[in-house]
């Protein structure tokens, strides 16, 4: 890189920074500060063994922080219940686009002590998409193989999983706050790696993009996991992807420790999974009782 080019670039960045409103600059400084306190070990080039890089993730972290503070005005409850070291966050999944994952990540970065990077698990086809795969790896996201999840947990990281998967994400509005079927894999992994599970209830995401109908077959044709119809999508095109400015509440439950063999029959594992489900449902009840409205 030519030195003059990098000089021009740094001047431009300083100027751009100076023109930002004061509050945004404060947020920028806060994000930088929090990113520097993440306990994940980095090598001499600033990467963790899985390609996570605080420097590269900074712009997306700032964007998530903006959404977290200004757009969804997220309120987190009992985030101090998340223990240090390895932990599995299990949350409900809703709202057509994964803003719930983004808000949990933002909360763990901005509100948790020490700040943590949330390691989410992505679908198998994501690493094949140019640029998206880099962006994903630098943000700490991995392909969702059981091996990857286990090695993350063994490294003492905080892994987020949505056991409902697309069943939850693309459900219609009449199903809001009704948990769909949970996969069992997460609990087997928790048993195998002796990891505490923290149930997380996301209140707000279920109304952010009210699904009226879903045409999975059409989605499949277009290479998407679903084809939802909402009041704005597909009528407004890409603009229709914008979520409503609902108010987010994140409730973190008491850590759950389970004993038993990870190879037990489905029925045995199911009982433990149901315990996690019930914990989320209890927090739903509390959260929906406490809030004054969907948007406030």
């Amino acid at each position: 890189m030519l030195p003059i080019l990098s000089g021009v670039r740094s001047v431009a960045r300083d100027l751009g920074g100076a023109l930002l409103p004061l509050s945004l600059r404060d947020l920028e400084r806060e994000v930088d500060d929090r990113l520097s306190k993440i306990p994940t070990r980095l090598n001499e080039f600033g990467f963790d063994p899985f390609g996570f890089s605080p420097a590269a993730v900074r712009p997306s972290a700032l964007f998530a922080a903006l959404l977290h503070r200004r757009y969804f005005r997220t309120e987190t409850h009992d985030i101090d219940r998340v223990p240090r070291g390895r932990v599995l966050l299990i949350a409900n999944h809703a709202g057509q686009l994964p803003f719930d994952g983004m808000m949990i990540s933002a909360a763990m970065l901005l509100e948790a002590e020490p700040p943590r990077v949330v390691r989410a698990m992505a679908e198998f086809w994501v690493p094949q998409i140019p640029w998206v795969n880099i962006w994903m790896a630098r943000g700490g996201v991995l392909v969702g193989t059981p091996e990857n999840c286990a090695s993350m947990l063994e490294a003492g990281e905080c892994v987020l999983a949505f056991p409902e998967g697309v069943r939850g994400m693309n459900k219609t509005i009449d199903q809001r706050y009704k948990l769909q079927r949970f996969g069992l894999g997460f609990l087997r992994l928790a048993l195998e790696t002796d990891t505490p599970i923290v149930p997380v209830a996301v209140v707000g995401s279920e109304e952010q993009q009210p699904g009226l109908l879903n045409f999975p077959a059409l989605g499949k044709l277009l290479g998407m996991p679903a084809f939802p119809i909402t009041p704005t999508f597909p009528w407004l095109g890409p603009l229709g992807l914008l979520p409503l400015p609902v108010k987010y509440h994140l409730y973190f439950g008491e850590p759950l420790h389970f004993d038993g063999a990870s190879t037990d029959e489905d029925a045995v594992i199911q009982q433990k999974v149901d315990e996690v489900r019930r914990a989320i449902e209890r927090m739903f009840a509390r959260g929906r009782g406490e809030r004054r409205g969907v948007f406030f």
Binding site: P49, F50, F124, W125, P127, Q128, L142, V143, T145, E147, N148, S151
Partner: peptide, 8 residues
């Protein structure tokens, strides 16, 4: 391969 786990 895209489906390779890390640290095989």
């Amino acid at each position: 391969f895209p489906e390779n786990p890390y640290y095989m």
